[in-house]
């Protein structure tokens, strides 16, 4: 059974890491979690980002957070990627599968997946 003692162990383990995190977060992944996003499937997309960022060991480089509606409800689930010194990338109509790919290619290797971005979606008319 899970116990609060286990949390105590997590605390001990995290002691050093927390210090590290202060100057981390080079990349920020923001998932739209308003009514429109949630109804379109944002919850599993968010959870996939949290899982995959961890399994690729990117926790110190990438932070995953949530935001409300950014006003393009028809493109939900929407995910924005912010990186210092670079232009914001907006991924649209996301799925857990696409999220896995974004972690692997974009967050890990720095290659934007143009096919999933809003610019591309608008060009081909979705």
């Amino acid at each position: 059974m899970k116990s609060l003692a286990e949390l105590q162990a997590i605390r001990e383990k995290m002691r050093d890491k927390v210090v590290l995190r202060e100057d981390s977060g080079e990349i920020r992944v923001v998932v739209g979690m308003a009514t429109c996003g949630i109804a379109a499937g944002a919850r599993p997309v968010l959870n996939t980002f949290v899982e995959e960022v961890n399994s690729h060991g990117l926790n110190n480089k990438v932070t995953v957070s949530q935001t409300g509606c950014i006003g393009i409800c028809q493109f939900e689930p929407v995910v924005e990627v912010y990186e210092a010194g670079k232009e914001k990338v907006t991924y649209v109509r996301m799925t857990p599968e696409k999220a896995k790919e974004v972690v692997e290619k974009h967050l890990k290797s720095g290659k934007i997946i143009a096919e999933y971005t809003i610019t591309n979606d608008r060009l081909i008319g979705g």
């Binding site: 609060l4 949390l7 997590i10 605390r11 949290v50 961890n54």
Partner: peptide
């Protein structure tokens, strides 16, 4: 129990 460890740690 967690003190200053953030609740959103993986």
């Amino acid at each position: 129990v967690l003190g200053d460890v953030p609740l959103n740690s993986y």
